[in-house]
Structure formats: structure tokens, C-alpha cells
Simulated assay, not measured.
Amino acid sequence: MVNQTKQLYFIALLPPAEIQTVVTEIKQHFAKIYNSKAALKSPPHVTLQAPFHLEKDNLPVLEKKLAEFVKSESTMPMILDGFSAFRPRVIYVNVLKTPELLTIQTKLTNHLESTLGIVHRAAKSRPFAPHMTVGFKDLTKTNFYQAWEEFKDQKIYFEFTVSNLTLLTHNGSCWEIYREFLLAG
């Protein structure tokens, strides 16, 4: 039975709309050619805080904490450069590990843990690997290797400024943007 008092959320950085369009077209290619549709269930993004359940009554508190957090965080550069993989199941657009990106992820997860007790144990036990997934979960090993042959040397490069922290919620079938928080600066 589904708990109706809790909702599933995650926090991410999203690229500008025109880059989301390009990455979504790549996801659609994965769905059509490699029968991997799972990545289409969320907008293109870089996850900062992995999915977590929260009591619906606590949503205003989460929003307040995120609004407080972004006041001290500046807009930041983000660079997408080529494709990479978590073999043998995930292919993604590579996101460069800039100091700004590593810092905001650490600060955000520490802030959520200390103020709301939100912790993703698995994510906490491994290093942060920023990426923008285009094929995963339902990508079979056979299709992974075929797709990797197609994408491993393919060029993709974008530099842009991220100006929002985005709270996404799961509606039961896919992830959607719930609210954006403007970064200072």
C-alpha cells in the first residue's frame, strides 16, 4: 500500500531549455533505437540530492530551508563535455567536476542532513559523480554495448551558467519540476 502522506522528491541543477531539448532528443533516440525509455521520466538534470521521501506536511519547511540555502550560493558555470558511462548499464552526458559544482553538492547535502535529517546513505558512501543520464535502468547489457559504440566518441559540448536549484517531485509515473530556487549572484 502506498503511503499517501509522503511524497518523493529530489534536488537538481537543470540546463537551459535549449540544452534540455538537445539532451531530450538523445534520450528519445535511446528509447527508439535501444528500447531504453527510463531516462525520459525526468527532465535533463544533474542530481545534487538523490531522491528522498518527505512527509507532505514538511514540504513548506523544505521549501523554506532551500530558499535560505540559495541566498548564500552563487550562480555557477557548468560544462557538458562528451559522453561517459557507468558500465554496463548507464550512459550519460559527461558533466565536468568544477569546484563550484562539487562545493554546492557537498554544502546542499550537509545542509539537508543537518536541518531536516535528509540523508541518502548510498549517495553518501560514494564520491559525487555529476552526470546527465541519457540511458539507464531499462538499458540491457547488449543494448548498452551497442549504444556505447555509437556514443563513446560522439561530440557534445555546452558551457552555460546555472542560476536555479530545482526541486522535483514524482507524480506517480514521472518526475516534474515542483519549484525553482534562484541562486544569488
Rank of each mutant, 00 (worst) to 15 (best):
L40I: 08
L40M: 06
P44H: 04
H45A: 12
H45M: 10
H45G: 09
V46T: 14
Q49E: 06
A50F: 06
A50W: 07
F52M: 06
H53Y: 15
H53C: 07
L54V: 08
L54G: 02
E55T: 14
K56D: 11
K56L: 08
K56F: 06
D57K: 15
L59V: 09
P60K: 07
K64Q: 12
K65W: 10
L66D: 03
E68Q: 14
V70R: 02
V70I: 15
K71H: 05
E73D: 08
E73F: 04
S74E: 13
S74K: 13
S74A: 14
T75A: 09
I79L: 06
I79W: 01
L80P: 00
D81C: 10
S84G: 13
F86G: 05
P88H: 04
R89H: 13
R89Q: 14
R89M: 04
V90A: 07
V90L: 13
Y92Q: 05
V95P: 00
V95C: 11
V95R: 01
L96F: 02
T98D: 02
P99Y: 03
Q105G: 14
N110G: 14
H111G: 10
H111A: 08
H111S: 11
E113G: 04
T115S: 10
L116W: 09
L116I: 06
G117W: 00
V119Q: 02
A122T: 12
A122Y: 01
A123N: 09
A123G: 12
R126K: 08
F128R: 00
F128M: 08
A129Y: 11
P130S: 03
H131W: 13
H131M: 03
H131A: 06
V134N: 05
V134Q: 05
D138W: 07
L139F: 03
L139Q: 10
T140G: 04
K141F: 11
